[in-house]
Design a protein around this nucleic acid. Structure first.
Lengths: 144, 144
DNA sequence: TTTGCTGCAAATCCTTTGCAGAGGT
DNA sequence: ACCTCTGCAAAGGATTTGCAGCAAA
């Protein structure tokens, strides 16, 4: 970790990394701030933003390119897919094997020099699905 | 079009729709504003935002859930995939057939009730690829 | 005539940045 | 000691919203 040699392992940076690795909830910068604040009450939001940037640049965490306006962060650095609840907007990990190599398959369809892809699924999470059994289906799919 | 019955087809709304359908460049709200302003110089940016929202809610256009901080809009309402240039950030249409039904395949891997997916490719566009032949490969991949 | 829509401007939300001092190495 | 990092606060960019008048239907 921290493969850029001029990086320092400060207390703030370490706590951010530890907290992010404790959860699988893909928190936003503000949510990371709240988590970290319980251990470092004087940390600033700016520091959280700067470290999330630094840590994703060094490959220790992932900044998720997912739908929605907030950027979310993932303590797992390895590539994996996500699914977002259309109702509560929660983002969950999913170990999905598409069965085909999408990146190499797409090369026949474009004149771009393709380097990767980003695939995110959408659906109702179990909790929201259960809740919606009591209301009409149309209502259940309304974005909150 | 305009299937919500209480919607009015105002001059502003019509011009926004027409301009968006003329291009395949997936403009941001601000870019739509510039395009529309040539025909309606007194239109406001707020009106553009409101109408882009309205038109995507009614299904006439698409609000793209793509990577990057700006929301982009597509005059084609039918589903299709996109590829983004990692250098100039241009978003291009791509008619890609994954060969498998990703949405139904993923159902074996999750307890969500899956309704759809969003797949975006990344790579160097032909223009940026040509330009990068003159510089080092590392430099070419640097995000601008 | 009704009421959804507009232009304007201010507000909001998320994120980035300048600065002077603190703290890793 | 050096120089990156920090907290603070202000700035920034994108988007949303309140309001009073305008204009589709």
């Amino acid at each position: 970790m921290l493969n850029r040699s001029n990086l320092r392992m400060t207390r703030q940076r370490m706590v951010i990394l530890e907290e992010l690795r404790k959860v699988n909830t893909h928190p936003s910068a503000d949510e990371v701030y709240e988590m970290v604040r319980r251990r470092l009450p004087r940390i600033s939001l700016g520091t959280v933003y700067r470290n999330l940037e630094t840590l994703s640049a060094s490959g220790d965490i992932r900044k998720l390119d997912s739908s929605g306006s907030l950027k979310r962060f993932d303590g797992r650095a390895e590539h994996h897919y996500h699914i977002r609840c259309t109702h509560c907007h929660r983002l969950a990990d999913i170990s999905f094997d598409p069965g085909v190599d999408l990146t190499s398959r797409v090369r026949d369809f474009t004149d771009f020099s393709v380097s990767g892809h980003n695939l995110e699924f959408a659906g109702l999470c179990p909790d929201c699905g259960r809740a919606s059994e009591n209301v009409s289906a149309a209502e259940a799919y309304t974005q909150g």
